[in-house]
Design a protein around this nucleic acid. Structure first.
Lengths: 219, 219
DNA sequence: GCAGAACCGTACCGTACGGTACGCAAAAGG
DNA sequence: CCTTTTGCGTACCGTACGGTACGGTTCTGC
């Protein structure tokens, strides 16, 4: 494996337009609506071109995932000095972004696709999705958590475990519920705030402000 | 107790055997392996009978969910007096049970099926799965949490929010990862213990024992 | 013992999919 | 200007699915 990322084929503009149509079909009608004939019709291209570009149906699905991942770029974080308030703000921003991403139409459709494809033996698409879709956001959170620890604002043994705690507090069972077709939250921001307050109560080194704790356990 | 929604048709032994085979096929090969012809062959019955009993394919899938749910009976809890240690034990037992259920082959297969079927507009199967599969375990946890509060061992505003916190701490993103084909945890018990310690740190009214806190944030 | 229902095994039907082949127009390139 | 490449549109093929029909067989009730 050379380097890490960006060994992605980088599709031509035409191919990207086709992949965009493919995503649209998938979002609007689920996997059964994404057929080679239907895509060729919707994208005004020939089936032959589809097979030439993407190999087969699985290649098309993989290309869709890569294409979507290439659109979500997570800006590298600044190296500013962390304060407790700043850390909390960044954690909340991360939480809100995470909830928004997970609730996105395209994200849900791709996850449904990969999960529907998966079996007990694992799934090529699932691996791809976790690798392309999650690594970015994982990195961002881990960097933030690590920075918080180095600044003496957070305390934990295992950064990975701490991150999973944060993730669980933010998302709970919401992701699976949305994948099953339930509507998302009315207020992502409130959920984000709650989760960060709880996370800081568990792993923070300082008392939080009074109004903040009111969210989690005040009357 | 028929109580609320036991309007489930209650299938005959023969039909239950067929549904069992259907689950086996689904677990072993995913949705694409669950065909009417394949099921008829595997269960030694005729396709005509399948359609007579279950109406159509969707009816078969719904029947599979109902059948599986009917097998998972959550024993009603005792009314014993709660102590802090007892509460922690029950919470840990709940967490272990939850992790074990979510990691089960049949549960994963049914969730994959319903998720693969779901679209933006929601899914009949998804609703069914959440209703039949989750309500039991939700009730159990809510009862336990509520009992803990009445015993003065837990403190929270919103029992629902507290339960979601507990759920998130226990499961994190593990469920989705497993749905995508990743292997489960090596040690469910450890994860359960961690989650309960964190939950009690957030919502408990008493200090936990030293070894317990060592799990979450020891030096 | 007999009529009727339930059921199995199989054959069958229409359809729609993934994938391939071909004819032709429009760019690309020299 | 001519050639080559690229790609569109369509037709086509094999397959496999969901669903139905039917003849033969076992089970059930009287």
């Amino acid at each position: 494996m050379r380097a890490d990322t960006t060994d992605m084929p980088e599709f031509s503009p035409r191919q990207n337009a086709v992949l965009e149509q493919a995503l649209r079909l998938l979002v609007e009608g689920g996997e059964k609506a994404l057929t080679t004939s239907g895509l060729a019709r919707a994208a005004n291209c020939s089936k032959e071109s589809l097979y030439k570009w993407f190999g087969d149906r699985e290649g098309l699905l993989a290309a869709m995932i890569a294409h979507q991942a290439s659109k979500v770029r997570t800006f590298e974080r600044s190296g500013e000095r962390l304060t407790a308030d700043l850390l909390r703000d960044h954690l909340e921003l991360f939480a809100r972004d995470l909830l928004q991403v997970l609730a996105g139409d395209v994200s849900l459709a791709l996850n449904r696709l990969a999960i529907g494809q998966a079996t007990r033996e694992g799934s090529k698409l699932g691996k791809l999705l976790l690798e392309h879709g999650r690594r970015q956001i994982d990195r961002r959170a881990m960097a933030l958590i690590d920075q918080g620890k180095r600044a003496g604002l957070l305390r934990f043994d295992n950064a990975d475990a701490a991150y999973h705690t944060l993730y669980g507090l933010i998302v709970s069972d919401l992701h699976v519920r949305m994948l099953l077709g339930e509507p998302g939250l009315k207020d992502n921001a409130r959920q984000a705030e709650r989760a960060v307050v709880a996370f800081l109560a568990l792993h923070g080194t300082q008392k939080q402000s009074a109004d903040a704790r009111g969210v989690s356990a005040g009357r």
